[in-house]
Amino acid sequence: MNEWLLIIGMMVVTFLPRYIPIALADRFRIHPLLRQALEFVPIAVLTGIISQASLIHDGEFHLAFDNAYLYGLVAAFITAWFTKHTFKTVAVGLIAYSIAFVLI
């Protein structure tokens, strides 16, 4: 496999979706409905990544008490709910995960 061909290809398909909308910003206007939809993008995408990364392991659904991710996820959720603070959420979530990981 040609590694550098892969990197160039990945660079193109990564950069263009990030840049084209910003580049053409002055030539197009966004429909209000589209703008409203965009407000939901971070919530939708990030939550999908959260659930897949914490409950799917090696392609299998893994909802069980021996899944250390579950403890990290629940601890992070509770912390985020009460503190609304990203850094505290990360700290508490990582500590809960580490404890569960060591004990399981």
């Binding site: 919530i43 990030l46 959260i50 990364a53 992070a76 912390t79 959420t89 979530g93």
Partner: peptide, 11 residues
């Protein structure tokens, strides 16, 4: 990554 995204989304 999971806990960071929770910290972004929930608030």
């Amino acid at each position: 990554m999971v806990v960071a995204f929770v910290g972004i989304v929930v608030p």
